[in-house]
Amino acid sequence: MEIQGKINNYWSKRANEFSECRLKDLEGFQRKIWIDIISEAVPEGKGLRALDLGTGAGFYAFLLADLGFEVTAVDYSQNMIDNAVKNSEKLGYTDIKFIKMDAQNLEFQNESFNFIISRNVTWTLLDPKRAYEEWCRVLVPGGKIMNFDANYGQGFKLAEEAGQNYKEMQNWSRSTYSRAVQSEELIRQRNDFAKQLYICDIVRPQWDVDILLQNGISKITIDTEISSRVYVDIQGNEEGNSDKKSSKRKFGSDSNLFMVYGIKES
């Protein structure tokens, strides 16, 4: 099987448990965490169009709809799209467009969206540079892009080389973020394709910034401490203390989450 097929097969197999986790996040404290983070960056105005790239179960699409956007959400996995549609029907989101589409080859006209968000997508792509070019192409001048990712592929590659076992790869700290335990077979599949992607050997997020600058994105902000806002300590939240946050930590072989945010030049 070619590498693109392996990537799609992996995410399609994870679609159901992934959906369950994101629904739990929507019901819990993660909704407020992400609403707060996104609200700091969204453009002002009415009738704004947002694109959720790699929507998965629809988590960010639902939040963007709550923030008043006209939302389009895409994913390469049909299983993910099917679950996102089911979740939207269950939760009463009737106006979101869910489309099966390749994030590296978007089927939208130039300057179609005011805001673009993505999470944990770029590290899975055969050509993330091409993806960034496409994302910037469909963004309107003055539009904003927000990407969350990590050096996951690099982390998985190093874990394999170090002989890290299955239990160690699943050694996550407790937090408000819902994470599903993957089978050892799925983890091996993930590591196999991840180490073949060129992005796993790149220094990030500096690389992301360079590519965005080349594609007309300016006023770029990098947050390499965003994990401290996302992976919040459970006990701290149960006590109602939103300031009690986790320190830097690694979840199995995962690298720390970062955010890259920028504005397209007018």
Rank of each mutant, 00 (worst) to 15 (best):
W135Q: 13
C136T: 15
L139V: 08
V140S: 02
G143V: 08
G143F: 04
G143S: 05
G143M: 06
I145H: 06
I145G: 03
I145Y: 05
M146E: 07
F148W: 13
D149S: 08
A150S: 15
N151H: 09
N151K: 07
G153L: 07
Q154I: 00
G155L: 10
G155M: 08
F156C: 11
L158I: 14
L158D: 14
A159D: 09
E160I: 10
A162Q: 12
A162Y: 03
G163E: 07
Q164D: 06
K167L: 14
E168V: 05
M169Q: 14
W172Q: 03
W172P: 01
S173A: 13
R174I: 08
T176P: 01
T176H: 05
Y177H: 13
Y177T: 11
S178H: 15
A180T: 12
E184K: 15
E185Q: 13
E185G: 00
E185V: 12
L186D: 15
I187F: 07
I187M: 14
N191I: 12
F193D: 04
A194G: 00
A194I: 00
A194W: 08
K195G: 01
K195E: 12
Q196M: 10
L197Q: 02
Y198S: 05
Y198L: 01
D201P: 00
I202F: 01
V203Q: 07
V203M: 03
R204S: 07
R204H: 01
R204L: 01
P205E: 04
W207Y: 13
D208N: 12
V209C: 05
V209L: 11
I211V: 15
L212E: 09
L212H: 09
Q214G: 05
Q214C: 08
N215V: 09
G216Y: 06
G216H: 08
G216R: 07
I217Q: 10
K219I: 01
K219C: 10
K219L: 10
T221K: 15
T221M: 12
I222P: 03
D223R: 12
T224G: 02
T224M: 12
E225A: 13
S228V: 03
S228G: 04
S228M: 15
R229Y: 13
Y231S: 02
Y231E: 11
V232F: 00
I234D: 08
I234W: 03
I234L: 13
Q235A: 11
G236L: 04
G236H: 04
G236M: 04
N237F: 07
N237T: 09
E238T: 02
G240K: 06
G240M: 06
N241S: 03
N241G: 00
D243C: 01
D243W: 03
D243F: 09
